[in-house]
Design a protein around this nucleic acid. Structure first.
Lengths: 185, 185, 185, 185
DNA sequence: TTTT
DNA sequence: TTTT
């Protein structure tokens, strides 16, 4: 008995994902995707950009850690998930509602980029299956060290001003505290 | 006036993608995604695997080349596209129909894997923008050679029997010839 | 070259659709869909309702007129479309953004209801065709009268207070004037 | 933890739905949707029809009965569901696989047609609610008779030859027997 | 096997 | 502002 608000979103990260942990240790990554609709104008026979749309996304557990490790500001991603609303009262006491995508699957788009995929050691998750895998035989050590070296460079490359993006933080902010141990969805 | 057969598919590659070129030089990559539906059985309170589904996918142009370079047998991917049917007559003269996903967006899933994304030089495509971009500073040569070395290992790792998967071939088979210069979709 | 923000929404109308016409005579129907996510809680082994989500939808041309004629407050619908954002400044000068679904296809859900479908005379639209008109075999009169009796009760059942819902209005409000002759999407 | 093969399908019924019951009394409706992709050819500046695609669909319980009562050959529908594969061996011993959409939500499209919705008495289902019942203000009788006149014509219009479509049958064919009490999905 |  |  499904049949809900399925959404498939394509766009670019407005900033590096933010990784957090609930008190019980569950990882959550939050990020915003900017999606600019392009429509083909039959009159003028050319493409027109619509107004950009910014959607907050949130992803849990192992995927959250993978997202924080793999994605940075500007990258184009594909997101499959369910649209949700969260209401709150702003400082003036007005009821506001915010939309958020609960991510089921996410990955970098290969439309304008290539990706080198590395399987996440399924420790602690009970992951039932696969994914990458390719690089494990590459000669662990070499691959590993390569990875370590690369990370910083990649950071700088995006000219991002945000420090700590994609870095884990065991925060104690209100939001984190408000989170239960388990994903609410 | 849209409103068609939108499909969002998650599953694993059954083999390395096959990259081909139409006579006029347009790239096409074909691959098959195996998707095993999991349903939560409320009686027994556990997850049950359904019958695996195998879907052919085809992607064009720059994305085709990126797919061939990035994805290998076994990897989990997210695919967004439109479902199509192709009919043909088999050797016994029976009309058969084959389903195929025309890929709009594809990427490796980050559920069980990480990915290092590198922006494709937008040469010859007029691509309006990008994703990745990060790895340019990794020191091209090193990265490159690393790739060459890694490829074979990765290959073996998935226990695949198909040789040449992911390799470009300027084929002249009937199918390639039948293709026009432009994607039919 | 597609690959956008596809959304498929299921929920209930919060009110009767509002039908308007652009100066040049193009029909637009606007309505809001309330969608309450239900998730199966594996701990307690029961279904839990999430926070309701309210999404504005807009549909154009013949479909707009059909929507206004067919749908009323409370009905469950399926909507297929693309999610868009519209920004504006509120009275305090704050930039607000509103989400809206540009409807590609819409229909009443048959999950808890039946529907008697009547093809719209394709006058003025060039629509290539349509749906049904099946019920002739039900024994018109009997079925009909049964329907008549039900209708009023059903109405009250919905407890809707809005009068004039689903009625066309050649409005001249700013929004209508702002609209061009053609759908902006 | 979802993230599967979501499909949203728009097309026309190739025949009236077939309603069956499992031994334990659960209703199932099967039908085929023909979907003809239309693409806008930028060269010639006109729409082109692609090859038609035929997809089997199956829907369960109350919705199955509603479908059988509401939909007939030729009608345009919107279907939201999950794509599945079913394998079998044909008479020559070849393994064949058939695709099928497990319907989550379905309804008649309002693009070229109107619909009069009537809430299904939620007897025996526990359905939490429904749509329908709006048209009371149209002036029942008049509207009704208008409908009656249209119905037969519409019927013939469709030139449908299949009799008994949409009629319930407590079949005992192999397939029905193979079905368990509960939907397999 | 098929719809518009 | 709201539906079930």
């Amino acid at each position: 008995m499904a049949g809900e608000t399925q959404i498939t979103l394509v766009g670019n990260l407005t900033a590096d994902p933010e990784l957090r942990f609930t008190p019980s240790g569950a990882a959550v990554a939050n990020f915003t995707v900017a999606s600019t609709p392009r429509t083909f104008d039959r009159q003028t026979n050319e493409w027109r950009d619509g107004e950009a749309m910014f959607l907050n996304c949130s992803v849990w557990r192992q995927a959250a850690e993978n997202v924080a490790e793999s994605l940075t500001k500007g990258m184009r991603v594909i997101v499959q998930g369910r649209l949700r609303a969260r209401s709150y009262d702003d400082r003036e006491g007005n009821r506001r509602t915010v939309f958020e995508v609960q991510v089921d699957e996410i990955g970098p788009s290969l439309r304008y980029a290539t990706a080198r995929v590395t399987r996440t050691p399924s420790g602690g998750g009970g992951g039932n299956w696969s994914g990458g895998g390719a690089q494990s035989s590459y000669g662990g050590g070499q691959q590993q060290s390569g990875y370590q070296q690369q990370a910083p460079g990649g950071q700088q490359d995006w000219g991002q001003g945000s420090q700590g993006g994609g870095q884990a933080q065991q925060v104690n902010d209100p939001w984190a505290n408000a989170q239960s141990d388990e994903p609410p969805f």
